[in-house]
Design a protein around this nucleic acid. Structure first.
Lengths: 137, 137
DNA sequence: ATAGAGGTTCCACCAACTGGAGGGTCAAGC
DNA sequence: GCTTGACCCTCCAGTTGGTGGAACCTCTAT
């Protein structure tokens, strides 16, 4: 199987698949002509990666999850630990976004949005308290 | 005022302030010695930027907002438009994160997290449907 | 005079890809 | 046998918003 077929099946761009090989997540064989030759095992791994990425796991998480997936002697606690950490990170981000959202919604609501220059949004940005600015998302 | 003072006052790292100059968001003067010499105007702009970034606006948004801020002939509609777009992007991200969160929470919940290898999380990643994988967050 | 704190520039790196240049390969049609 | 077009290859650069570090200059206090 060539990369194009794998891309169509997995839904991952060919570029991404090459990238995953580059960083050692998959090791497809090569044919005589130098083309990558994918097998079911690779396809399966790519599906795994696609789904893990869709759930927001980092590449490093994916690397670890893949290793656990292939380790028959794993303990499910290790997997759960990765997932729980990730869940916590997601919750943090959601909280951050909610906080931004509420401030922003207020400001948008207060702004007339007409041809006049008066604007509560700019007023706030210009004079509001700038808290920490913790590299928001 | 030197960059260190400005950094302390604004809460932005000196590196970040230099970076903002680099990309043209601020244009502090220079003293004889080559040091940046910040004035109230710069301080004010940096506070503006800090707050806008804390609300999650992109640098390009900030650039536009700053331009509007300094344009007495602006229409508040332009500002509101930027803010509404951003609000929509935030909502999208929140929705995405919520969707990840719910799937992930289910899986975490189903996983025993003990010394045995059986793991619903890995099962799901290995066999679940891989939807689009829209470069999650 | 010298130490230490602060300033300067420039280059490299982070995540996770994506785009494009420049070139090789394969299958089909003429 | 040749060309066309689709496919594949590698390598380099760019994205976002900074951050870290090296190498060097300047200021202030002792």
């Amino acid at each position: 199987m060539n990369i194009g077929d794998v891309s169509r099946i997995s839904g991952l761009p060919a570029k991404t698949i090459r990238y995953y090989e580059d960083i050692g997540l998959i090791q497809p064989r090569r044919g005589e002509n130098g083309y990558r030759s994918f097998q079911d095992k690779d396809l399966h791994k790519l599906a795994f990666l696609g789904r893990a990425r869709a759930l927001g796991f980092t590449i490093e998480d994916c690397r670890n999850l893949l290793a656990l997936y292939e380790d028959d002697g794993r303990e499910s606690a290790a997997v759960k630990h990765i997932a729980e950490d990730h869940l916590a990170r997601i919750d943090e981000k959601i909280a951050q976004l909610h906080s931004m959202r509420s401030t922003l919604a207020e400001l948008v609501n207060a702004c007339a949005g007409d041809h006049r220059p008066d604007c509560p949004i700019l007023d706030d940005l210009g004079h509001g308290q700038c808290i920490g600015a913790d590299q928001a998302l």
